[in-house]
Design a protein around this nucleic acid. Structure first.
Lengths: 343, 343
DNA sequence: TCCTCTAATGAAACCGGTTACATCTAGTCT
DNA sequence: AGACTAGATGTAACCGGTTTCATTAGAGGA
């Protein structure tokens, strides 16, 4: 039976309870004393009218959105589920809202289009890998928008907290394992997305391992995989169809998702894993232990990364300075796709 | 060099450009004619001041949040990645924001706590399975909050659009396959979460298939799995440790995630899949084809479900009445965990 | 030439909260 | 008793947009 719109405002409550809006507001927020009798009356009226405060108005008045944003490149990798779970956990614990958006930065090359997330939207942002370019990040940073980078380090000189995982040493160890234990000498590297940092450091680790053993780096063994199953599949397929492609005895898949594509492509041409080709991944995703054969990989504490990142962002919002660099340790997980027997 | 806060308002722009705020607003929204010279001046000033409109204020004035909410039970199943991907796709296409939250309804038993999502937050909500109770849903519905249910049908008589997948017929077919083709007679059913609808219909399908073949329903073969890998693992493990547990020759895992737990538990006691025990799942998750052995399951078009649900919600927001019931077809996918040979 | 109509613009109210400031009690101290 | 203080409440300005309504200028018609 309200006037027009279905929305009951604080003024309706105030009128009905015979008090001022200020008092109602104070009762709501418990930030100033309100006498017992009035409190009761207000509470009762609020229930009667089924009053729900309008978050928007509150946000405007407080200049605070109580919302943080998560910017991703896409959602087509199982990697994102644990990341999201970690983030959502601490965000909801803090009573905040979580805005999720994907963004391919090249779509916003010029400053024409509005970003899906920004200071108009959120109190702070979690930026995954290269969902934004360094330049775009710098712009947000210049406007003082609190940010934490995930799986990405800021451009040199830019002071933005980031959390990522140890890529290089782990990759090096992994490739070293292929060389030392399994005698591999011609290892294909399936890169991730171009300019992607994880991809970069995994390649550095790969090269380092080769170097350690005096194996020359061979550009023809480097393929583009984008950390996506289908892309990896297609890329390797194309490679294999090449009449005289270079010989190889192992594949470092870049990440676990790509490893699946690799498995597929190899199987289709009758190559067995690990007998004919050894395969290793990265992430230790939920499915890695259950592949055929179980995937040798590197465990990255993805959910923990999500939690750290969110925590750091909240520290930023609360005014304290979080750790600038957080690099979570990784751990090689030997299974059977590298040729090792059941552990 | 702004006064105090870092924020440039529409009034700053108006002053600087020598026009009224109304004109700037009109220019921004292109909803009323603004003369060429003024347009140019405004555009120039906006760039100079790096003006970004405050979404909150706009939302308040328009009583529209341009945001939709997705309410989930948790994020610990690979099922959610494709669902999210589908939803996020259409939401961002529409230029809307996507708020993601998890909610265990029993935490909000009394109306004490504020829901993470609601009319204060969003223009409409996508509600997954039992992230809300029927009663809670009814309350939101009574307040006219546009909603679409995902993997859940509304309480009888309640007119809320929903989108789900065909569960019963597919389950029946799957169990029938176990019985007819593989001669199974004692099939464990690993249920999903209590009161969960998918779980319910899958059980109905399971019972129907038994019935079709005159196999009596045996309560002792029904286990609680929650559609979660670890829970399924623990439940089956406990079952197996029981000194004289009833004999069985197959497991219908409820969903693919649970199937993984089943694989694990069986392997640990030395039972082979499919030689000793046949296992089937539901969802055809990304990893199903890559398990050892590849999982026989039912393909549910999860990403498509996400897209439909989002589309329907937008229809609701635009005032048109979407289909009330959308049931996506499912398809049995025969692989090897049921005992079939490579297809 | 005068009247009417339309396009372009501005002033001010409004969206629904918060809060600085003023006011009015009642209690405490000397 | 008088001054001072703390507690409880109300008034009104404010957050940063949108939009109604009024006003003005110029074009077209009789």
């Amino acid at each position: 039976m309200t006037k027009r719109s279905s929305s009951v405002t604080i003024r309706d409550v105030a009128r009905q309870a015979g008090v001022s809006v200020a008092t109602v507001s104070r009762y709501l927020n418990q930030n100033a004393p309100v006498s017992e009798p009035l409190s009761e009356r207000i509470q009762q009226v609020m229930e009667e009218l089924a009053y729900v405060p309008e978050a928007t108005a509150r946000q405007l008045a407080l200049r605070k959105k109580h919302t943080i944003g998560l910017l991703l490149t896409n959602l087509h990798n199982d990697f994102f589920a644990p990341l999201l779970a970690g983030i959502e956990g601490v965000v909801s614990e803090k009573g905040y809202n979580l805005l999720v958006a994907t963004c391919r930065p090249h779509l916003y090359s010029d400053n024409g289009v509005q970003f899906p997330l920004g200071s108009h939207n959120t109190d702070g942002m979690l930026v995954f890998a290269d969902s934004l370019t360094d330049e775009q990040i710098a712009r947000f940073h210049a406007r003082r928008l609190p940010m934490v980078l995930i799986h990405k380090t800021p451009a040199p000189g830019v002071q933005i907290p980031f959390v990522t995982v140890e890529n290089k040493a782990a990759s090096r160890k992994l490739v070293d394992h292929l060389i030392t234990v399994h005698g591999c000498g011609r290892i294909i590297l399936m890169r991730g997305p171009e300019h992607q940092e994880d991809s970069y450091w995994r390649e550095i680790g790969y090269r380092a391992a080769l170097d350690d053993h005096g194996i020359p780096f061979d550009e023809s063994l480097i393929l583009r995989g984008a950390f996506e199953r289908e892309v990896a599949y297609n890329t390797l397929k194309t490679f294999l169809q090449e009449p005289n492609h270079p010989p190889f005895d192992a594949v470092f898949a870049g990440d676990d998702d790509a490893a699946i594509g690799i498995y597929d492509a190899l199987r289709e041409v009758g190559l067995r894993v690990p007998e004919d080709v050894r395969v290793v991944g990265f992430d230790d995703s939920r499915m890695a232990p259950f592949l055929t054969p179980p995937l040798t990989t590197v465990r990255a504490p993805t959910e923990q990364v999500g939690r750290s990142a969110a925590h750091h962002l909240f520290q930023l919002l609360e005014g304290s300075l979080p750790e600038l660099a957080t690099v979570h340790a990784t751990e090689m997980i030997i299974r059977q796709s590298c040729g090792c027997q059941d552990v």
